[in-house]
Simulated assay, not measured.
Amino acid sequence: DLMKQRQGMLLLYTMKNPSFPEYIFSSESGIMCLDFHDDYPYLMAVGFYDGNVAIYNLKTTSHPSYKSCAKSGKHTEPVWQVKWQKNDMDNNLNFFSVSSDGRIVSWTLVQNELLHTDVIKLSVEGTTAQGPEGLQLKTLGCGTSFDFHKKIDYLFLVGTEEGKIYKCSKCYSSQFLDVFEAHHMAVDSVSWNPYHPKVFISCSSDWTVKIWDHTIKTPMFVYDLNSGVGDVAWAPYSSTVFAAVTTDSKAHVFDLSINKYEALCTQLVVTKKKNKITHVQFNPIYPVVIIGDQRGHVICLKLSPNLRKVPKAKKGQEVEKGPEVETAKLEKLLNLVREP
């Protein structure tokens, strides 16, 4: 409950025993988000409700190995997302965070200290508040989610509480490359397609999931799911499969190459009323999704075989596989909806 903040917990499970966590770490403030490091899976970046960020080393202690503080540029509002990036030029560990305070911050671990750099400050366009003695104060935009491009290192997207999505570069701190008038309410999640370099997906409390080409200002596909969409995730094995979860406790799985208009499957996941689902993630290897809800439950679901249909081989031909095939599959679909 965001109004009644208590302590937070970080729990690590294995799929072999989903009923009890392998590791339990408690924290003074609620934990809002986390990210495993790709190369060092024992390192975890964590963002807290009180605006702090930390790095946990699961090999050593149950306390954060490194943590921000008021002096070292912590956020003033909850941190909604953290993401590891490649190490910097001097091979120092590096991650980014986004918060309701409108700052996107890069954190670098230098000589056992977390150093921060403000990459971007979001401001709400055309809105200035009247301060004391007639001062014009710029109102800050609230960042809610972000994602970095898989191939173009400097490029990233930021979703905001006003429903806009900003296309940003790590190189320019005051300018946006582009602004998408994406949603009527807060953008709950935004992420690049794992295969196609131009495509990203966004979802919002305004009931919609939208798929975009980042060079075009209007969405390619729009799906209305009849309830606020808490999270959306691309499948790691296909460029056209994604899952979304909605506040009416349903999980939806789409495959654009099979049906461009509606979900292949919509399933009620949580039986208790008024229990909103907040997050969904695909397992990187197995056809399993993991879903988290407001009450702290984590549910693992296996995708049934008809939700992961693979193209059948024609006689005497092999089925082509690989990233290029996935990219081409999505490109073909986009060409149908792009302006001629």
Rank of each mutant, 00 (worst) to 15 (best):
Asp293Asn: 15
Glu262Cys: 05
Pro323Gln: 06
Ser304Phe: 04
Pro311Glu: 13
Ala328Met: 09
Val298Tyr: 07
Lys309Asp: 06
Leu336Ala: 04
Ala313Tyr: 06
Pro284Thr: 11
Ser257Ile: 11
Val289Glu: 06
Pro305Trp: 06
Lys315Arg: 12
Gln317Val: 10
Lys315Gly: 05
Lys302Val: 14
Asp293Ile: 11
Lys309Thr: 11
Pro287Tyr: 10
Lys260Asp: 06
Leu301Gln: 14
Val269Gln: 04
Lys260Met: 12
Ile291Asp: 11
Ala328Pro: 00
Leu336Gly: 00
Pro323Asp: 11
Arg295Ala: 14
Thr278Arg: 11
Ile299Ser: 09
Ala328Lys: 12
Cys265Tyr: 07
Leu301Val: 09
Leu334Ile: 12
Phe282Pro: 07
Leu307Glu: 00
Lys314Pro: 00
His297Gly: 10
Cys300Tyr: 11
Glu324Asn: 05
Lys321Trp: 04
Gln281Leu: 14
Thr327Phe: 00
Val337Lys: 07
Ala313Leu: 12
Val288Thr: 09
Cys300Asp: 09
Val288Ala: 02
Arg295Asp: 15
Lys332Leu: 09
Gly322Trp: 03
Leu307His: 00
Ala263Glu: 12
Lys274Asp: 15
Arg295Asn: 15
Glu318Phe: 07
Pro305Thr: 12
Glu262Val: 03
Asn335Gln: 10
Leu336Asn: 02
Ala313Cys: 11
Val325Phe: 02
Leu268Arg: 13
Val337Asp: 00
His279Asp: 08
Glu320Tyr: 01
Val319Pro: 01
Leu330Gln: 03
Asn306Leu: 07
Asp293Pro: 03
Gln281Thr: 13
Cys265Leu: 13
Val298Arg: 09
His297Ser: 14
Ala263Tyr: 05
Val310Trp: 04
Thr327Lys: 06
Ser257Asp: 13
Gly322Val: 07
Gly322Asn: 03
Leu333Glu: 01
Lys276Thr: 12
Pro284Ala: 12
Glu331Leu: 02
Glu320Lys: 12
Asn275Ala: 15
Thr327Asn: 00
Asn283Val: 08
